[in-house]
Nucleic acid binder design. Structure first.
Lengths: 222, 222
DNA sequence: TTAACGACAGGTGTATACACCTAAATCAAA
DNA sequence: TTTGATTTAGGTGTATACACCTGTCGTTAA
């Protein structure tokens, strides 16, 4: 936006802070200070406030006057709502004007599959995140409906940290699951079958929700 | 937020400007000036900028440095995407944990039906808008899934001005259609049938999309 | 006559001082 | 000792001055 200046693009700051929230660098309940972030990024509070408002709109933080900006806590009810919604959205991918699946997308899917296999041999939480993230971006490219794409992105970033936390507590299981998922995604893409792609996504989100429900019931026995 | 002060709540300014955009007081392409709005609402540019950023996240305006804040133009492709999405979302209302439909909701629905009938006798564009708006809020109350509710709201406000413009060009047709819609909504609610409610909404959004497609093809003949 | 350059007006983006709010620590009184 | 008001430190919310960007208009040279 300002190619002839040293201004740090606000988008870049937004991405960095969002990643910190998704990767649990800032776990739920963390208090962010505008002045602290401003000092870190070498800007004034004004653009930081702008970024925080974007994050608030995404449901990732919540500003309280006189207190600070809190990273949101997601209740299980909200998590379930988000996952149910994502299941429905995934089913829509194949039916709402999907884009053509070209060779580049197919080869990227196979690369992701290989990267997932490597994770079963030596698990690495950051790589796990990156494979998930790259696969998400791959699928976003195939979504033809701009409104669906927007929502798919929105809920992905909102749910990401839940998923990521699960991956930290049960890495082996998650790595195996990711191999299956990337394999099925690659198969669907090889067939050029966007409907199958959507169903695969829908299924794996269902599996994820089932795991979350199980973990929640374990921690809240009645 | 500040009960002991004269501060104008930012939310109130947001609602007012959003209504102006939805009601075509600010038609697409209109340039909003932060300083002008600040003067009108008796605040500084800072809270106005905050409101504009919210509107930008909602897809209603777009700020361009050195130029101004433009009310977005919706291409037909985007409108179609939004409507297709709303059709799918409407179908989800009844299947995703709907709230109980109490007597108060039923009676409100019948009031809306009466107001719609009055519009066929003497059409009034603002009342038309209000009936639509109140019916929207009624349905929002029934949606039990918080994620779905959020999206349903989002796309309603994004699509509202398109609908409103159509109502201005063909008031009689729209008034009749609104009577049918409010009647079917009231029937579904009387039965306590949230699934039927969702399907009714889905159908009427489809009708709306069909009208928009017809109008678009008339204005862009090939 | 026309095209290119430059000054200018007025917009958004940013930095900063200040007002207001909140929570915790402190102190006084029961 | 405990409870309550009060002070205080430090946060977000707002107002305002300034920096930078953009489109327009006028001037000038080809």
């Amino acid at each position: 936006m300002y190619p002839n200046s040293d201004r740090v693009p606000a988008d870049s700051i937004f991405d960095k802070i969002r990643n910190r929230i998704c990767l649990l660098d800032y776990p739920p309940g963390t208090i962010l200070r505008e002045s602290g972030l401003a000092a870190e990024f070498g800007v004034s509070r004004t653009p930081i406030r702008s970024v925080i408002q974007q994050l608030a709109h995404c449901g990732l933080v919540e500003s309280k006057d006189g207190v600070g900006t809190l990273v949101t806590e997601l209740s299980f009810a909200k998590i379930r709502d988000i996952y149910c919604m994502r299941i429905k959205l995934a089913e829509c991918i194949g039916h709402m004007n999907p884009r053509e699946i070209d060779q580049k997308i197919k080869s990227t899917a196979h690369e992701l599959q290989q990267r997932a296999i490597l994770l079963t041999q030596q698990f690495n939480i950051v790589d796990y995140w990156l494979v998930n993230h790259d696969q998400h971006n791959l699928i976003v490219e195939i979504i033809g409906n701009s409104a669906l794409k927007q929502m798919w992105n929105h809920f992905y970033y909102l749910a990401a940290r839940i998923w990521y936390e699960l991956a930290r507590t049960d890495p082996d299981n998650m790595a195996d699951s990711l191999v299956s998922e990337t394999t099925e995604v690659a198969d669907a893409l090889d067939q050029g079958n966007a409907i199958a792609l959507g169903l695969v996504q829908s299924n794996y989100i269902s599996y994820g929700l089932a795991r979350l429900e199980k973990r929640y019931q374990e921690s809240n026995p009645k």
